[in-house]
């Protein structure tokens, strides 16, 4: 069977080994066969307790919600930047530079800054106080550690925007001017061209990158640890807590959580590859 697999695929498998190994080990650990307190007999108790624990699904759901919201905001903004500022004019170039400048800023810095700005005694609260809108930090609506995850969503969106904007701008530039000219001479107004040609091509091309940023936001530990509430917990934070739990059984549960996270990542990877194969060639 292995003999039929081309050599380069085996190389790729080697690169993926740590993940594949992690999956295998996590599966064994959550069944109690490997890891601390392991026994020779598989035991479904830990698996059962992970799967039936409401906390598990609340955390998974909440992390998905945060990743989805932040990615939706960032993708919309990135698409808007590419569509609204496409030319060589100075103002357009300036707008594009602004959108892409924070590209290499780490998640951690984005999250820390969000904390400085959006916390109840942060800069935003101070500005609102100066404007007479609130009189004490407690009156500031909670954006940090709140169940809505507003600060976390904004921090992740801020971090994702530059990357998605870079891709969207490259795509926008790659949409041949000829295509838009063709649509114009067939009777489409600039708005119609944007709606029927440019945007449909742009979002299809952007989709793989959107999936990639989604899965990065989903897995971002440091942003969640700084900005997410305790309940519902973010999945990466909950996993980390379980790893450090003094109870051995709870540590085993961490592997169950890791498996869920890896499952989400695997689906995203497959979707990334499928959308790239399907739409990647529409825009060069």
């Amino acid at each position: 069977m292995l003999r039929r697999v081309p050599f380069p695929v085996l190389l790729a498998m080697l690169v993926a080994t740590p993940v594949l190994f992690g999956v295998a080990y996590s599966a064994l650990a959550v069944l109690g066969i490997a890891g601390a307190g392991a026994s020779a007999v598989a035991d479904s108790d830990r698996l059962f307790s992970v799967l039936t624990d409401r906390t598990t699904w609340r955390a998974t759901g909440w992390s998905l919600y945060v990743a989805f919201s932040s990615t939706a905001i960032a993708a919309t903004a990135a698409g808007a930047v590419a569509l609204l500022f496409p030319t060589h004019k100075r103002s357009d170039r300036f707008a594009r530079s602004l959108a892409t400048l924070p590209l290499p800023v780490p998640h951690l810095v984005a999250a820390a800054t969000a904390l400085f700005v959006l916390s109840q005694s942060g800069l935003l609260a101070r500005v609102l106080h100066a404007l007479g809108l609130i009189d004490a930090p407690a009156n500031m609506p909670a954006l940090v550690y709140d169940a809505g995850g507003i600060a976390l969503i904004l921090a992740l969106a801020w971090k994702e925007l530059p990357f998605l904007a870079v891709v969207a701008i490259a795509l926008r530039a790659g949409i041949a001017r000829d295509l838009e000219d063709a649509a114009r001479t067939l009777g489409a107004s600039p708005r119609t061209v944007a709606r029927t040609v440019t945007w449909p091509l742009l979002w299809r091309g952007l989709f793989p990158a959107v999936i990639a940023t989604f899965v990065f936001a989903f897995g971002s530990f440091e942003s969640a640890v700084l900005l997410a509430p305790i309940d519902p917990a973010a999945l990466p934070v909950l996993t980390m807590e379980r790893f450090a739990d003094p109870l051995l059984a709870r540590r085993g549960e961490a592997y169950g959580l890791a498996l869920i996270a890896l499952g989400v990542a695997a689906v995203a990877v497959a979707a990334h590859e499928v959308t790239r194969a399907r739409w990647g060639s529409l825009v060069r």
């Binding site: 295509l179 000219d181 063709a182 114009r184 001479t185 067939l186 009777g187 107004s189 119609t192």
Partner: peptide, 15 residues
């Protein structure tokens, strides 16, 4: 504007 002229332009390689 291009869209209201009643002319259709066809590129050298079909777009």
């Amino acid at each position: 504007s291009a869209e209201s002229r009643g002319t259709v332009y066809l590129h050298q390689t079909p777009v």
